[in-house]
Design a protein around this nucleic acid. Structure first.
Length: 428
RNA sequence: GCCGCUAUAGCUCAGUAGGUAGAGCACUCGGCUGUUAACCGAGCGGUCGUCGGUUCAAACCCGACUGGCGGCGCCA
């Protein structure tokens, strides 16, 4: 048995091969039928003729799209075939003869989402999922290569990380628990032994967001490292993004072409990435056609207006403390600012990473928690980390689906994940 | 939470100053030995999202509800 990709070259001309897969297209003209067969690697045109197959010809010429089969035949080079070669069928085995496949050439967004379990077989989706696979692998590989350990936190938690309003609540025996929004705090507990850790885990946000860059369940890649400061962490992240993209370029060139991605834009993504302080960005906002004042948060429109001017990702640092949550370390040199960073992706995509240096001194953390009205009892274990051998440390959270969305230049984050969960979509 | 758009055949869509519902694709049958989401002929296919209102008459006008899509806020 050969993969389709492996037989599409001149070495196989004249040889007899067997491939198996699914009917991608089928066209019949009486005594000759063209069947395009698809497997996970590629597609190939196969020719069935009544002269070769005799009585069995009708069995194969009447097949329907997505029926599964195995064919054996000799390979011929032919420019008329979609991938340049074709198989002259002289034997075949049908595994399943389908009723008609529901997805045809006309398709609405809603229909395709309802039939996502079938739509993911499409060539575009297959390529996106291959790229996504590379992104996940490259993320892990990068951190393994840099001495990080992979760890896992719980998905069911009793406290919020970001804020109270966006948690999914569920019953846990007699108690209420929440689905995690971030594994950050649990990663922080592990740096005191492992020093450098990362995780890939789902995070859940009950925000009723109706946008093309939000999911209710998304894949969160997080890292946390002892002894690193904000700038150190940014250097790790830019190398990580550069590595992931270089791996995609190396392993998925065919897939990027199939989805019509402009590869030169990705080839340009090399560290270091530019950095700008929030207050400088506010000053510069007029150049980007906006009139922002200090204290304004960067919304989707602002990120877009900024990032269409950059061809590399951009770090925005030193946000005012009011714009971010309680655990960020205040900048001793710039009162009112914190040592944090967001990474905005180019081509208008916007935020893909949020990170920064964490407060590591006990009194400072308690003071900030009080300001935010957070109950110390619920966070006793997080507070304990500042009592026993506390050290400076930094971390980040990356939205892997957002990264895939950008790398594939997709229009909607839904198409960066096989089964998107949004406020309006829980099936299939 | 707020704003906008949308719902007609299995799928994509048209439809009318309010008067018995239409095309393409898919499917079935027939034809075709070089197709490229083939082509030609015939057939099959609808309680026009649901409920209510206006009217002699509603897919069409009005209201409510439900599903879906997009935008904002929030974030990754």
């Amino acid at each position: 048995m050969e993969s389709i990709e492996s037989i599409l070259n001149d070495d196989f001309i004249g040889k007899t091969v067997t491939v198996h897969g699914w009917v991608y297209r089928i066209r019949s003209s009486g005594k000759i039928t063209f069947i395009i067969i698809r497997d996970s690697t590629d597609i190939v045109q196969c020719v069935a003729s009544s002269v070769n197959l005799g009585d069995r010809y009708n069995d194969i010429s009447s097949l329907t799209v997505e029926s599964s089969l195995e064919v054996t035949g000799k390979i011929k080079k032919d420019d008329r075939a979609v991938t340049g070669y074709e198989i002259q069928i002289n034997d075949f085995k049908i595994y399943q003869r389908n009723e008609f496949f529901p997805i045809t050439k006309d398709k609405s967004e809603e229909f395709l989402l309802d039939n996502r379990h079938l739509w993911i077989r499409s060539r575009e989706f297959t390529s996106i999922l291959k790229i996504r696979s590379t992104v996940f692998k490259a993320f892990s590989d990068f951190f393994y290569k840099n001495g990080y350990y992979q760890v896992q936190g719980p998905m069911m938690v009793s406290t919020a990380t970001e804020g109270g309003a966006t948690l999914f609540k569920l019953k846990f025996f007699d108690d209420d628990v929440y689905l995690t929004q971030s594994s950050q705090f649990y990663l922080e507990t592990m740096i005191y032994s492992l020093e450098k850790v990362f995780t890939i885990a789902p995070s859940f946000r009950a925000e009723k967001s109706r946008t093309r860059r939000h999911l209710s369940e998304y894949w969160h890649a997080e890292g946390e490292a002892a002894w690193l400061h904000n700038e150190d962490m940014m250097q790790v992240e830019e190398k990580m993004i550069e590595y992931i993209i270089s791996e995609v370029l190396e392993n998925n060139e065919k897939d990027l072409k199939l989805i019509n991605r402009d590869i030169s834009k990705l080839e340009n993504i090399k560290a270091p990435f530019p950095r700008i302080k929030y207050r400088d960005l506010i000053q510069k906002s007029k150049e980007f056609g906006m009139n922002l004042k200090y204290g304004d948060d960067l919304g989707a429109d602002e990120e877009y207006n900024i990032m269409i001017h950059y061809d590399k990702p951009l770090f925005v640092t030193n946000y005012p403390e009011e714009l971010k949550t309680f655990y960020h370390l205040p900048d001793p040199e710039n009162p009112g600012e914190i040592l944090c960073h967001d990474l905005l992706a180019p081509e208008g995509y916007g935020e893909i990473i949020g990170g920064g240096e964490r407060i590591w001194k006990l009194d400072q953390l308690l003071e900030r928690m009080q300001k935010y009205g957070l109950p110390e009892e619920d966070y006793y274990w997080y507070i304990d980390l500042r009592k026993y051998g506390s050290v400076p440390h930094s971390g980040f959270g990356l939205g892997l689906d957002r990264l895939v969305n950008w790398i594939c230049n997709l229009n909607n984050i839904r198409d960066a994940i096989p089964y998107p969960r949004t406020v309006r979509r829980i099936k299939p």
